[in-house]
C-alpha cells in the first residue's frame, strides 16, 4: 500500500530539507568527513538517478552505498560483481514449478529499491549490460515478460579505477547512464583517526537506523520536479553543453541526456538548499560530478594532465552568466 499510495506531486521544501538533513546525519555517522560525497549521494537519490562511486579500494565506497541503503527503510540488495556473474543473476530467471506445472519468475538481484553494485567493472560486459538496461528502463524483460521495478529505484555502483587489474572498463554509453560520478578520496587525518576509534569496536552500520522510507523519498522526488528553472538558467545549461562540445580539450562533449540529467540534479540541489528556484550556482556546483564521467578528454589534455572535470569547468567558465530573468 505504501508504495502505491496516491501522492500529490507537491513541492514540500521543508520536508525535503528535513529528510536530506536526517539522511546526511545518519550517513555521516558512518562515513566521516565526506560531506560533499554524502550530499551528492542523497541528491542523486532524490533526482531518481544512479550513482557511480569510483576510487581505489578501501576508501569507503561500499560503506557509503550500504549506509545510504540503511538510512532508508526500503528494500536494499547488494550484488557483488565478479567475472563469472551471469546476466540472469541480476535480472532473475523463470523456473519450472513442478506443482503448478508453470514457469515461475524468480526475481534477480536488481529487484530492490536500492541496488548496491559492488565493483561493477569486474563483471563481463554482458552482465554489465543487463544491469544497465534495468537502470535505464526501470524494468526487466525475461522470457518475453516485462517486470517493472518498484520506485524508488537507484543503483549505486562502485568501481575501481580502470587502470587496475582484472577489470572490464564501462564503455562511454554505459557511463552516460549514471547521473553522477563521485570520487571518495582519502579521508583527512582527523577523520581517519576517528574512524580507527569508532570502527575498531563494532560495525557502525549495525547501529544505523532508517530515518525515512522509500515512499517518502518517491513522493518528495516527485514534488521536486516543480522547482522553477528560469529561462536564463536553462539557456545557461544549454550554453555549457555547447561549450563542452566545442572545447578543444574534449574529444567527446556532453550529450543531450547529460543536459537533462543536469537539469534534474540542479532542481534537487535547489530544493535541498530550501529554494524553489534554480540559480547558476547550482549548475556550476554540479557540472563536474554530472558531466565529467561522460566526456572524453583529448589526448592533448590528458598529456597536459587535465582531467575531464577540469575541461568541463574550463568550458563552463567561457559561458556568460545569466544576468537577469
Amino acid at each position: 500500500m505504501t508504495a502505491q499510495r496516491v501522492f500529490t506531486p507537491k513541492l514540500d521544501l521543508r520536508q525535503v530539507q528535513q529528510t536530506a538533513q536526517a539522511m546526511r546525519t545518519a550517513i555521516s555517522s558512518v562515513i566521516e568527513g565526506k560531506a560533499e560525497q554524502i550530499d551528492l549521494t542523497i541528491l542523486v537519490l532524490f533526482a531518481g538517478g544512479h550513482l557511480l562511486i569510483e576510487d581505489v579500494p578501501g576508501v569507503g565506497k561500499t560503506m557509503l552505498a550500504k549506509a545510504l541503503g540503511r538510512a532508508i527503510d526500503c528494500r536494499v540488495r547488494r550484488i557483488q560483481f565478479t567475472p563469472d556473474l551471469l546476466p540472469s543473476d541480476i535480472t532473475g530467471v523463470s523456473v519450472y514449478n513442478q506443482d503448478t506445472r508453470e514457469f515461475e519468475f524468480k526475481p534477480g538481484g536488481v529487484f530492490a529499491n536500492i541496488v548496491v553494485g559492488d565493483e561493477i567493472n569486474r563483471a563481463s560486459p554482458k552482465t554489465q549490460s543487463a544491469l544497465l538496461e534495468a537502470m535505464e528502463e526501470r524494468q526487466v524483460s525475461v522470457d518475453g515478460r516485462t517486470h517493472r521495478l518498484p520506485p524508488p529505484f537507484m543503483v549505486v555502483a562502485t568501481q575501481n579505477p580502470i587502470e587496475m587489474e582484472g577489470t572490464y572498463p564501462l564503455p562511454e554509453a554505459q557511463r552516460d547512464r549514471f547521473m553522477a560520478r563521485i570520487e571518495m578520496g582519502y579521508p583527512t587525518r582527523g577523520a581517519e583517526l576517528e574512524m580507527l576509534g569508532s570502527h575498531g569496536a563494532a560495525n557502525p552500520l549495525a547501529s544505523l537506523q532508517a530515518v525515512t522510507d522509500g515512499a517518502t523519498v518517491t513522493r518528495l522526488a516527485a514534488g521536486i520536479s516543480e522547482v522553477h528553472v528560469a529561462q536564463p538558467v536553462k539557456e545557461y545549461i544549454v550554453d555549457i553543453m555547447e561549450a563542452t562540445r566545442l572545447s578543444s580539450d574534449l574529444r567527446l562533449g556532453a550529450s543531450p541526456r547529460a543536459g537533462l540529467q543536469l537539469l534534474r540534479a540542479v532542481r534537487v540541489r535547489a530544493a535541498m538548499d530550501g529554494r524553489d528556484y534554480v540559480i547558476p550556482d547550482d549548475v556550476q556546483a554540479l557540472l563536474a560530478p554530472v558531466l565529467a564521467h561522460r566526456v572524453l578528454p583529448s589526448s592533448a589534455a590528458r598529456l597536459a594532465g587535465r582531467s575531464g572535470a577540469d575541461a568541463v569547468t574550463a568550458a563552463a567558465a567561457t559561458v556568460a552568466l545569466p544576468r537577469s530573468a
Binding site: 522553477h228 528556484y277 547558476p280 530573468a325
Partner: peptide, 10 residues
C-alpha cells in the same frame, strides 16, 4: 537578487 532573477515568483 537570486530570487528576483531566477525564482518563479519574484
Amino acid at each position: 537578487v537570486e530570487r528576483q532573477r531566477y525564482a518563479a515568483a519574484p
